[in-house]
Design a protein around this nucleic acid. Structure first.
Lengths: 209, 209
DNA sequence: GTCTATACTTGGATAGAC
DNA sequence: GTCTATCCAAGTATAGAC
């Protein structure tokens, strides 16, 4: 329910506000290059072709721009992940790709989370919110994949596909987060994503026999 | 003459001022990560373990720190280049490596030149100075290589080694700069150094028969 | 030599003209 | 909707205590 409201707001914002979109593009570029702290509203404004004061017409403050950027990037990330997943012909390969790729690709998006300790604490609730949003969609997608696999007799489970999907998703996520945490959370650099992917693949080999 | 004075100043500064050295290390790290504009004196001070006001005991201002960092990095770059060059046994290979490697390696040092247009104009004379400094040393080194090659009968020229060295050096430099300029000078990113190296190597094959 | 205090400049944010 | 003017906080730089 919240999800629907949210998605609608997003879609409307995107379709009916080209300037807002432009600001998001500018923000995304600046945050990626400089990180949150080192990005100024002048940076974003100049890139978007607007006076910095005008940014406040579209967003509450700098953090709000950042949140919107993270949200948009996450959305695009998931959307692209689904497309790439469905390009595989074999359902097992789809499941495997979806679960491992989201770990690997997380490393590419993570530049957005170059935050000072101060801002990290302030923005953490927002991250959790985006995270919950995304989780629901991802689990739903994975559930569809599994159901399809069961229907095609590619594999079978003693439990409902939805529960299996949730378990597998949490597994993938736990491995991703562990890789992150061991490298200092929200600090880019040296998270061992390849290690996490390797662990996950070994586990999938067991699950699929 | 200027060169000698300069080198002495450098050496004394390095040997007798461990704190100054520490500031340069801190500055180098910050400038590399954030660029000149986005680096604050607090960033450097904290990393060097000094109050930002104390930085002014060692340096005139922020630009002065930046200049010293560029100088030190350039020095280290050339010194390392010489060592790596002399590791080759064949004189021809030494010449070839020296001329191509300095193009390739320039790309790694270039992060230091992430400057706003404003600061770029202000600091350009300084860059030219460092550049002239370095050029003399590099040409001298290349001249030695060529003389050695001639003495060993590895190759011969109708002109003095010093003039040939200068010509070859300018060639290498022109190719480097062209690659830079086509990508927007002092902007890192997409300079075509591989292309420049390729051109140079083809030319060297002609020069050495 | 290093720091605190402070003058001056730039960045984040608001008010209000157009 | 967008901008100028303006407030307050952070950044650059200086003066001066210790």
């Amino acid at each position: 329910m919240f999800r629907v409201t949210f998605a609608l707001k997003q879609r409307r914002a995107m379709k009916e506000n080209p300037k807002r979109e432009e600001i998001l593009r500018a923000g995304s570029e600046c945050f990626a290059r400089f990180g949150f702290d080192k990005t100024t509203l002048d940076d974003i404004g100049q890139l978007a072709g607007l006076n910095k004061a005008s940014l406040y017409y579209y967003f509450k403050n700098k953090e709000d721009i950042f949140i919107a950027v993270v949200l948009a990037e996450t959305q695009a990330f998931i959307s692209d992940l689904k497309t790439k997943t469905l390009a595989f012909s074999d359902v097992r390969k789809q499941v495997r790709f979806f679960l491992t790729e989201r770990i690997r690709r997380y490393g590419e998006v993570i530049h957005l989370t170059k935050l000072s300790v101060d801002h990290r604490q302030k923005l953490e609730p927002m991250f959790d919110q985006v995270y919950e949003e995304t989780k629901i969609k991802e689990v739903a997608f994975l559930t569809e994949l599994l159901k399809k696999g069961v229907a095609e007799n590619a594999f079978s489970f003693p439990e409902p596909s939805a529960s299996v999907a949730e378990s597998l998703f949490y597994l993938s996520d736990a491995l991703k987060n562990e890789a992150l945490r061991s490298a200092g959370r929200f600090i880019s650099g040296e998270a061992d994503f390849p290690g996490a992917i390797e662990k996950l693949e070994r586990l999938l080999r067991l699950v699929f026999r």
